[in-house]
Design a protein around this nucleic acid. Structure first.
Lengths: 209, 209
DNA sequence: GTCTATAAATAGATAGAC
DNA sequence: GTCTATCTATTTATAGAC
């Protein structure tokens, strides 16, 4: 990430990055194989180590790109002059957009949750906290204006990203379940985002308990 | 997992099972190491292969135990004579209980979601479908009685397990984030379960959109 | 049932030519 | 920048003794 495109390099760094993201998403950190990454990038292992110090550094670069993108989306929403309810809607939409621009995003995030952020370095952790802080700011703004109830930002965030990652990551699995027997459960991307937006606002507007 | 306890075996199979569950939870399928599993079980690798055909079979046994437990909990709820709203509450509670009885459950489930059920065999898939079918049955019962709105069971299920696994799996990570800076976000187990119960019922009772 | 020893394959990482 | 060749460590799995 961040570097002039197609100069002498002919984009080999970008190819490594993309191939690695797909590999880490499919196999997890420990299960990812440097040789497979090289082949998928139409290069060889040595080229990976030319661009990245080692496996861990390569993975960290991918994590940083993911959470950096989320932070960027969210920061734009927080800085906008929109009313709090609309900010919440765009907050959800922004996370969905950052995730959809990166097919590896939902699987990697789910795996990272599973291992308690094992590979999350300080810089990435900062991004994560910024996102949570921005959400907290929107909630506080809504409270001051009397349109939101007090809600724990962590609960809210869990209610947003958990179902979102679930849906985006399981498109394939859901098809597998459907094929195995009768359970018509296809749900479109827009339906999901709209649903999560409504669910989040219902909490903030005190329509839940 | 099904088998007479402490006969000649002195529970070595159970020790392998437990150690493997912890290892798969921490490292994922590909990252799990048979030698580490053996050491954690205070045995050697050969004993793993005495009890289980290979790594894949060992993992499958753990998956089956997990989803079998969920199915058992859920089936009891569905068969009870309780009113639909209470069934939904106990459905959520039952899944939480099955997960809490197995510390490896949330991480493994999240990872399995991440890779689209790569290691889910036909028998386990059957359990998963049974759980979803049971939920659909409760929803239909509520609709017939006029207390529930029509809701896609997959959406409902996602809204339950995704946040639940998120919270149960990230207790450690959330602490890490808190330590790194100010964001008071500790949430208790009961708060989470109650929250998810209310959220689910709010959807079914049409209080969302 | 439980162990040691080891086969056979695969992994991450680097040296050095071009 | 890109490659081949290779070192070294690790890993799944099995053979065979007790």
């Amino acid at each position: 990430m961040a570097r002039p495109k197609r100069t002498p390099t002919a984009g080999s760094r970008e190819r490594v990055f993309a191939a690695a993201a797909a590999e880490f998403a499919a196999k997890g950190y420990a299960g990812a194989n440097m040789d497979r990454i090289a082949r998928a990038a139409r290069l060889n292992k040595a080229m990976i180590y030319y661009h990245f110090k080692n496996k861990a550094a390569l993975y960290r670069a991918i994590l940083r790109d993911m959470f950096g993108a989320v932070r960027t989306e969210v920061a734009a929403v927080a800085a906008s002059g929109l009313e709090p309810g609309e900010k919440i809607r765009r907050y959800v939409e922004g996370i969905a957009r950052a995730a959809e621009a990166r097919p590896h995003f939902p699987p990697i995030w789910l795996r990272e949750l599973a291992e308690g952020g094992e590979h999350v370095d300080a810089a990435t952790l900062e991004y994560v906290r910024d996102v949570l802080t921005a959400l907290g700011g929107i909630v506080n703004e809504g409270r001051r204006r009397g349109v939101f109830q007090p809600v724990n930002p962590m609960m809210l965030q869990a209610g947003i990203i958990a179902p979102l990652m679930f849906f985006l990551a399981t498109a394939r699995l859901r098809q597998k379940i459907e094929r195995a027997g009768p359970s018509p459960l296809a749900v479109s991307r827009d339906t999901i985002v709209a649903h999560i937006q409504r669910l989040t606002l219902a909490q903030l507007e005190g329509r839940i308990s």
